[in-house]
């Protein structure tokens, strides 16, 4: 007999899991939202209560215009860094992964060693800053992009390499017979097939880079270089007595990664199931 639906036991476990998840994930978010909507005085009480007076819009404008529209500059910087770094990560990760997987050579061992070192050895901050200063990239957005690429590249290479191993080599050879040059094989045959893993990488890395706090703190000091996570740090002292504004700021910083995740979540799943390459 085929049973439809869940047993009572399964259902209870399901309800319990949902409750735990909502407590852990949703309640804090609701708390942030309420705080961001309160008045200065009410927020100072720090209670989980319905706002008696909704001030969402005025709080929002106040945070945005604060310190010469610093938040907008921060958004701009963060988006440039995220988009630039993720683009380079996908491009280089896929290219290096492709060559490593498809063209075995004596160099491969050395390259693998480098990749593993990149994955395992924790970066040393001060020497990295020396290098950046030597290259004239310290306190620049492009320097920050390169730092993020360097931190993420090993993982990207390994991810792409193992995915490319599942793409039959016959496809490359069919393209060679069709007259494709190596770069054309990569761009027109391999890269489109990497879509599922590319989407995964984009989501994971863009959320990580956008939310990164410590690396911009070390490598990207300076008012004009502020990133969204650093606005919290910069505003903290001023907002000490204005928790409604601090929480509005937190809300604004949290929303973009959330949108990315909700939007791409479907794509990840769709990409995974449509990723069957063989046959």
């Amino acid at each position: 007999m085929i049973r439809h639906g869940l047993t009572p036991r399964q259902r209870n476990i399901g309800i319990a899991a949902t409750l735990v998840a909502s407590v852990v994930f949703i309640l804090p978010f609701v708390f942030i939202f309420f705080m961001a909507a309160k008045t200065k005085r009410e927020a100072a009480l720090f209670l989980f209560t319905w706002p008696s007076e909704w001030q969402l819009w005025s709080n929002l404008t106040e945070v945005v215009v604060f310190r010469d529209y610093m938040l907008l500059l921060a958004y701009f910087n963060s988006i440039i860094i995220t988009v630039g770094a993720v683009t380079l990560l996908v491009l280089f990760g896929a290219m290096v992964g492709y060559i490593l997987q498809r063209r075995p050579s004596g160099w491969n061992k050395l390259i693998y060693a480098g990749v593993l070192v990149g994955l395992m050895v924790p970066p040393a901050i001060v020497p990295t800053i020396w290098v950046l200063q030597g290259l004239g990239l310290f306190k620049t957005i492009s320097g920050m992009i390169l730092i993020q690429v360097a931190y993420g590249l090993s993982f990207a290479i390994l991810l792409f390499r193992s995915f490319i191993a599942t793409i039959p080599r016959d496809l490359d050879e069919a393209a060679i017979i069709d007259g494709a040059k190596p770069l054309q094989i990569f761009l027109r045959v391999i890269l489109p097939l990497l879509r599922p893993v590319t989407v995964t990488l984009i989501v994971v890395q863009s959320i990580f880079i956008f939310n990164d706090f410590t690396n911009p703190l070390y490598y990207l000091p300076g008012k004009e270089n502020v990133t969204v996570q650093l606005t919290l740090f910069n505003f903290q002292s001023q907002f000490q007595s204005q928790f409604n504004l601090l929480f509005m700021n937190i809300l604004l910083v949290t929303i973009p990664p959330l949108i990315v995740f909700v939007f791409f979540n479907r794509q990840i799943v769709a990409g995974m199931t449509a990723g069957a390459v063989k046959g």
């Binding site: 039959p168 496809l171 050879e173 069919a174 017979i177 494709a180 489109p192 097939l193 390459v277």
Partner: peptide
């Protein structure tokens, strides 16, 4: 060449598969 595994490009339609070499 015709491969044992057919080696069709999975992301392209039949039309683009056949025309791939010509478009290159």
């Amino acid at each position: 060449m015709v491969f044992q595994s057919y080696a069709l490009y999975p992301h392209l339609s039949v039309r683009d598969n056949i025309g791939f070499g010509l478009s290159l």
